[in-house]
Design a protein around this nucleic acid. Structure first.
Length: 463
RNA sequence: UCCUCGGUAGCUCAGCGGUAGAGCGGUCGGCUGUUAACCGAUUGGUCGUAGGUUCGAAUCCCACCCGGGGAGCCA
């Protein structure tokens, strides 16, 4: 007989003759001669209440082993519940114990734990309500991303995880090598001789798939990457990971406005999708984690994002009735406090800021008329800050070469990137989005380490 | 990396120079419909690590390690 998922049983909500479920015991309430237990199989936030009484075979031995954390299989009858907390419950006919859990050492209790503590038991924390809900939402979010792009005819492309050049210059890189670190080959100058390394030159974990996405967009028009990205930056914040997932769409024949339109449509789509597919989990976050989660989602879905230029943003900040730690003037990079003011206090919704000074942005962003600004845009979200960063790319070979020089990049490494402008260049644009930040924003979780199953941060790679 | 707060029982914390505490959890007992069940009893500690001050240090000082929050960098 087929094993049923608890989510389906609860959704159906009807009595049934015989049902089998498999899962992990969350709680047991033992009375004289019978017991209630809640079994969770990961399919939903709510578990199924199972009633065990001394008519089942081996009741006395089984009841001692049905403890929080134990894995069991229950066969029985779905009946209307006499209690108040649930519509139906499973009256067990028989129970199989797969694996016991020693209550004296099992670290998860029937009460709330701090997220800090749960991080020290990442191999078990997914069995808690909150982390369970987070990872179901994370999955829904990933599904929504693929569905959004696939529906629009974007091709999912697989950018390399190992790259041999630090093209974007974004942050510190992790080196990839198979040289013997205890006996490094040296050249005449006493430096490490990478010609003897696996790739014959230094190699790194990717910090962005953007340049490769541009390559593929020059053949397939609309593409996106969705995969892991690495930064060896020593950042200790609630918004940074050394290993995180990034989504990077790239569109040929597209300008900055089209880029902004896609970003807005994209965020609306995934919020809508998650609300529709994980209503129970979202209610949970709204109740226990952050009471503005549902209102925020509603705000995203039903309002147009504000769109202002950097120049306008600076104007607004200069006349803001608020004292900033970092003073505002045209030319500065916007600080966290400035971004927060715009998104949280002034507009109270996501704000797209565009056309930043060229000095504070990357070399590949398209130079605007007047050559003071570039066609960049950031989507700033309340409580999270920058959630999306994108731009129209510089498609003009001469301008791009000039910008590479100005920003001190090594054009020899970029020969293939420049070739895209030599052969059939087109205006194109794209953006990057930190996947975990979207999950954070959506769930209201304050620390990014709690929205990825196995967080990688400085000094932390245990699991 | 910087600023700041913290590290005491399995968990969450109180104690802040003079015998190491509470709640929860665990264990045992009670209870025929529980819902983080309830009631009673009980168990549980190198006070992050190493130095120093003191008659005496969980408590004061110093260094280091680890964690939270904020900042920088960014996604």
């Amino acid at each position: 007989m087929e094993t049923r998922r608890v989510a389906d049983i609860l959704k159906n909500g009807q009595p049934e003759e015989t049902v089998i479920i498999k899962g992990w015991v969350r709680t047991k309430r033992e009375l004289k001669g019978f017991a209630f237990t809640e079994v969770n199989d990961g399919s939903s936030l709510a578990g199924l209440q199972v009633v065990l009484d001394n008519e089942i075979p081996d009741y006395d031995t089984i009841i001692k082993k049905v403890n929080t954390g134990a894995s069991i299989e229950v066969a029985g009858k779905l009946v209307p519940s006499q209690g108040k907390g649930q519509k139906i419950e499973l009256k067990a006919n028989s129970v199989i114990i797969y694996g016991e859990a020693d209550l004296e050492t099992y670290p998860l209790q029937k009460k709330r734990h701090s997220f800090e503590f749960l991080r020290t038991i990442s191999h078990l924390r997914s069995r808690t309500n909150t982390l369970g809900a987070v990872f179901r939402v994370r999955n829904a979010c990933a599904t929504a991303i693929h569905q959004f792009f696939q529906e629009k005819g974007f091709m999912w492309i697989h950018s390399p995880i190992i790259t041999a050049s630090d093209c974007e210059g974004a942050g510190e890189l992790f080196t990839v090598t198979n040289l013997n670190l205890n006996n490094l080959p040296k050249n005449d100058a006493g430096e490490v001789d990478y010609s003897q390394d696996f790739f014959g030159k230094p190699a790194y974990l990717t910090v962005s798939g953007q340049l490769q996405a541009e390559v593929m967009a020059m053949a397939f028009q609309n593409v996106y990457t969705f995969g892991p990205t690495f930064r060896a930056e020593n950042s200790n914040t609630s918004r940074h990971l050394a290993e995180f997932w990034m989504v990077e769409p790239e569109m040929a024949f597209c300008d900055l406005e089209g880029d902004q339109n896609l970003a807005e449509e994209f965020l609306k789509y995934i919020f809508k999708y998650v609300l529709e597919t994980c209503p129970e989990d979202m209610e949970f976050f709204n109740k226990w984690i952050n009471k503005t989660v549902l209102a925020t989602a509603d705000n995203i879905i039903n309002n147009e994002f504000a769109r202002i230029t950097y120049t306008k943003a600076v104007e607004l900040l200069e006349k803001a009735d608020k004292k900033f730690e970092f003073p505002v003037e045209w030319g500065i990079d916007l600080q966290s406090e400035h971004e927060r003011y715009l998104a949280e206090e002034l507009f109270k919704k996501p704000v797209i800021v565009s056309n930043y000074p060229k000095e504070i942005k990357a070399f590949y962003m398209r130079l605007d008329e007047g050559e003071k600004t570039v066609s960049a845009m950031d989507v700033l979200a309340p409580n999270i800050g920058e959630i999306i960063g994108g731009s129209q790319r510089e498609e003009r070979l001469d301008v791009l070469e000039r910008r590479i020089q100005e920003t001190g990049m090594e054009s020899d490494d970029l020969w293939w990137y420049l070739d895209l402008r030599r052969y059939g260049t087109v205006p194109h644009a794209g953006f990057g989005l930190g996947f975990e930040r979207v999950v954070q924003f959506m769930t209201g979780m304050t620390n990014i380490r709690d929205v990825i199953p196995f967080p990688r941060t400085p000094l932390n790679a245990e699991f």
